[in-house]
Design a protein around this nucleic acid. Structure first.
Length: 484
RNA sequence: CGGGCUGUAGCGCAGUCUGGUAGCGCGCCUCGUUCGGGACGAGGAGGCCGGAGGUUCGAAUCCUCUCAGCCCGACCA
């Protein structure tokens, strides 16, 4: 018997969900806390997940006519201060660049040189509506310049009080799209279209689904007329906003003078939008798919989809390794991300490594398989119960199908969990009673509850927030939950 | 930014109350036996105890000041 715990991760999700989350990240070697306050270092395995997300979604944006570009990381403070509502939202979490030179003080410590203080201070971008709005005002002259669709992949900085790797860090990575249109109808259409792209991306690549809907006025992005989002549910029942699109109306057009000439000769304000998803999505993947043995990667964005594990005994190892390499090469030829684990480690340790990293499909090849021309494989999402032996040829033909099946099952599991943990409440009393009883999940209520002055106290008591008003309910209901 | 807690080896901790120059587990390195859901034995490397002052013959330990992190709130993708 093993001295090891029954699960690869301690504590388990049930024992301590936040600690389990941290341990999964460590066990999968995805990221760690950086020496810089509140910031994370994303390690190769974690970054590979992000890269896959970027590569897929970037292509979709280009298909939609979005052009990539790059705006400065430093934004003049004066830009930020132009839009009052926007300032209210971000000013309190901005890092400010005030000097352009360091020098040694009397103790030899490097300090900002007093003589090098900047006349114009800069904030490290918390988001780029202002500096892009400024550019748009110069780039857009006529209706012929519209729509203008811009995007940048970059990182932003928000000085958060409490940080957690991937979920909330000082610096995080995202893409931010900023589009300009001639009227509100087009702008709203843009918001809804991009939201559909996000939904497609989530369901088809991340095996994630949630509630598509619109934010309540209190939860809107600072400066937006309307904020749309997809709210997802973590395994502890808490909500997580997975992406957003903002209908900014003419807020930033007015502030930054983004106007175009119409055919008839007059001038009109542009209607702008902005939208994003972030590295937070990796945290969502962990909390939606992970289990007590660690990460479970959705196959279509998994950095490695298949690990080929040679079971070596000393004799005939070279033949087994050759057999494995041949298998991996054939899988790669099929477009699959497969790799032989040739590291000098004990086989069981390699297995647990693959399990903790969440590699979707593990293939074991030993002397038995080689002699019989077969392979043995195990699905990460189902565990050893799914262990199957089949001929080499049929496996190579069917591998893509197995990965697709894993994806579909993971998505179905996520949807079932979401549905089973979404409850109805008709009154504020019911809402309070639900959370007072220690239950978890989302609570769906009639929207009229938002006008009830008694709601706030109950929400505060249980640390609840309104997540969104789901499109599926056509504005009749609002989802309330604890959230990340 | 309030309230609480913690900084000692890569990680997790003991030692601090009752000062005497640092220890345990895991991990890491070497050798052997092992290897299909976490092996075992024997050796070995690794720490100016968060930082700066102070008290003392002597400080991880006592005092002062700092810095950082964690948890609980308020704010947030």
């Amino acid at each position: 018997m093993s001295k090891q715990a029954k699960t690869a991760i301690t504590p388990t999700r049930e024992e301590n969900f936040p600690e389990w989350y941290q341990q999964v990240i460590k066990a999968a070697d995805m990221a760690e806390n950086a020496p810089t306050r509140g910031c994370m270092t994303v390690k190769p395995y974690g970054w590979a997940v992000w890269e896959n997300m970027v590569n897929i979604f970037d292509g979709w944006l280009k298909d939609y006519g979005v052009q990539n570009c790059s705006f400065p990381m430093l934004i003049p403070v004066s830009f930020l201060s132009k839009e009052a509502e926007h300032v209210d939202g971000f000013a309190k979490e901005c890092a400010v660049v005030t000097h352009h030179r360091l020098e040694a003080d009397e103790n030899g410590a490097l300090v900002p040189a007093p003589a090098a203080e900047l006349e114009e201070k800069y904030v490290v971008r918390p988001t780029s509506e202002t500096i892009i709005g400024d550019a748009m005002s110069r780039w857009i002259q006529s209706y012929r310049d519209l729509p203008l669709k811009l995007n940048q992949w970059c990182s932003v900085l928000r000085w958060e009080m409490r940080t957690r790797i991937f979920l909330r860090t000082g610096e995080f990575f995202w893409h931010e799209g900023h589009n300009a249109f001639k009227d509100h109808e087009e702008a709203k259409g843009d918001c809804l279209h991009v939201l559909d792209l996000y939904e497609k991306f989530f369901t088809e690549y991340l095996a994630v689904d949630g509630f598509k809907g619109v934010k309540t006025p209190e939860e809107r992005f600072p400066g937006a007329n309307e904020t749309y989002c997809i709210e997802t549910m973590m395994q502890d029942g808490k909500g997580l906003q997975a992406c957003t699109t903002h209908d900014l109306g003419t807020t930033f057009s007015k502030t930054f003078n983004i106007k175009y000439q119409i055919q008839e000769g007059g001038e009109e304000l542009c209607h702008t939008t902005s939208w994003a998803f972030t590295t937070r999505m990796i945290g969502a993947l962990i909390m939606m798919h992970g289990d007590d043995d660690g990460m479970v990667m959705p196959p279509r964005i998994a950095p490695q989809q298949i690990v080929v594990l040679p079971v070596l005994k000393g004799e005939g190892d070279a033949d087994i390794l050759a057999y494995c390499s041949d298998l991996a090469a054939k899988l790669k030829a099929k477009g699959l991300r497969a790799k032989v684990d040739e590291r000098e480690m004990r086989t069981p340790d390699k297995m647990w490594d693959a399990i903790k990293k969440g590699i979707p499909l593990r293939v074991e090849v030993g002397g038995r398989e080689m002699e019989e021309g077969v392979v043995t494989h195990v699905r990460r999402d189902l565990g050893r119960e799914s262990k199957t032996t089949q001929s080499l040829e049929s496996f190579i033909e069917g591998a893509q199908g197995i990965l697709d099946a894993i994806h579909e099952d993971m998505l179905a599991r996520v949807r079932r969990f979401r549905d089973e943990n979404t409850h109805e409440a008709a009154s504020i009393e019911e809402l309070g009673a639900f959370f007072a009883a220690g239950k978890t999940g989302f609570v769906r209520m009639p929207v009229a509850v938002l006008d009830d002055p008694a709601l706030e106290a109950v929400m505060k008591e249980h640390s609840l927030t309104t997540r969104n008003m789901p499109f599926a309910d056509e504005g009749r209901s609002v989802l309330i939950a604890k959230a990340y």
